[in-house]
Amino acid sequence: MKDLLEKLSPWLFTIAIFALWEAACRIFNFSPFIMASPTQAFGAIIQHWQPLLRHSFVTLWTTMAGFALAVIFGVALGLIVGWSRTIYRGLYPVMIGFNTIPKVAVVPILIMWFGIGEIPAILTAFLISFFPIVVNVATGLATMEPELEDVLRALGARKLDIMLKVGIPRTQPYLFGSLKVAITLAFVGTVVSETIGANAGLGYLIALAGSNFQMPLVFAALLLLAVEGILMYAVFALIEARFTHWAFRSSMSAAA
């Protein structure tokens, strides 16, 4: 019984929040130009399903493209940074500085360079999601037990051997943990960019519908955005559990 309740609890909470939202809209009787209730939002989804589907798809693929770039470059840079202490020391401040820049501030530049369209969205998703991947991969390498390295070096292992046999496998839980964070950040990047300058995507749709006071449509787009985010998060949580089950059982589960 308790198990069942625990299993159902995410659904129960979601339904409860929607119920609260609906109740608040009815009690305060908001103007439809300011706020939409869940029923109105779902109504808008049904009514505008075609454009919503098209824009959802654009947001999804641009996010995935940016995220894929972030994984490729993030893993590569993370391995380079984690490879040597000197590079780690040298690049760390640069990367912190880079990460501190709010990516919203970069979007206008990207739009200037690449024009209105999907490319700025892809690049913003990439820029925003790439950092946690680098940091986690580098941390996974840098926190390798020095004694284990000694064991291998006393056998004549080269740096590459140590990386392949120990460094890269032990980085996996750190990597997969960071992918869950990175994918949600990538959505943020895409939508920010689409809101500022695009001609497709859920961000664009929200900005457009907002300026036309079509609140039900705005909330419909927000809901779809949440659904996409949750789905992708779930996919990467599954991949993580699949590939790094050992980390959950051993003491290495501290990776975040």
Binding site: E145, L148, R153, A154, L155, G156, P169, W246, M252
Partner: peptide, 18 residues
């Protein structure tokens, strides 16, 4: 340089959990 032949073991078993 590293002797390339020695076996080593420490207080922590340092096994690879994967």
């Amino acid at each position: 340089g590293p002797v390339k032949i020695a076996g080593m073991a420490f207080q922590n078993p340092n096994l690879l959990p994967w």
